[in-house]
Amino acid sequence: MQVPAPFDYARASSVDEAIALLERLGPEARLVAGGHSLLPMMKLRLATPEHLIDINPLESELNYIREEGGLVRIGALTRHRDVLASEVLARHYPIVREAEELIADPPVRNRGTVGGALCQADPSEDLSAVFAALGAVTVIRGSGGERVVTMEDFHEGPYETAVGDAEMLVEVRVPIREHGGSAYEKVKRRTGDWATAASGVALWLDGANVGAAGIALSAVNPTGIRSTRAEQALIGRPPSEEAFAEAAALAAEDCNPATDQRGPADYKRHLAQELTHRALRRAAERALAS
């Protein structure tokens, strides 16, 4: 079996200690939480950190889903299974459970964390699209304090985020807004596979019209996950098949998929359109029913 190269191991017992360790050990140190992105990379020896800082002991500090102050706050060490099971998230944002049901598989979800998923920044990862569509922000902490970064700015490119060498993601904040609906659509080749293409959509109604919209795609763009032109095409119009079709077409136009084992680029571009359209339909139904 493939095994990681040697490293030094340290456990952090608090966020501050984790940050202090990162500062002390330098750029060859990596945090590990669920480990389901990092450890496979280490087994392939694509990642060979000299120091691994285990932040699982921070579970009591960073595993939470709390509704407060017009926000749902999700701790970075919240496991996928907790996100999937959360009634608070399911009530406010159906997109979250729909996406989570399609992320990896149950044992992986028992370990993998929200923070790990976002910080890996795989272009085919799902939660980045979900949170981008919902207009969430991330909270990044370093020794100098915390800063708040939007999902668009957080996600700097494939496997690159706004989190600095001696910083860590500690929280995701999702705004609670009324008259909204959301949905996630994903095509994959097999259970547990990464997305061939996926689309996350959220809509908020202002009277009879769409007041705000979030559309974010996964696996069809190396960088940039939100489709702002598609969002704009919906705003100020009543939710309708025409509007959805137009927005979906723009989302497809604006994406830049690559041909690979999951399918040719034209197929993925088609999926961007098809899945966005389907998600918009379902999100609108939910918004109208809310």
Binding site: Y9, H36, P107
Partner: peptide, 29 residues
């Protein structure tokens, strides 16, 4: 164990009662 990529689940054990792929967890963890 049956793979290197956390896909096959031959290595599943229960950690605190939950199924976990023991090929993708350090013993130290």
């Amino acid at each position: 164990w049956g793979c290197d990529t956390s896909n096959c689940g031959a290595c599943v054990v229960l950690v605190d009662g939950e199924p976990v792929k023991s090929c993708t967890m350090l013993a130290a963890m």
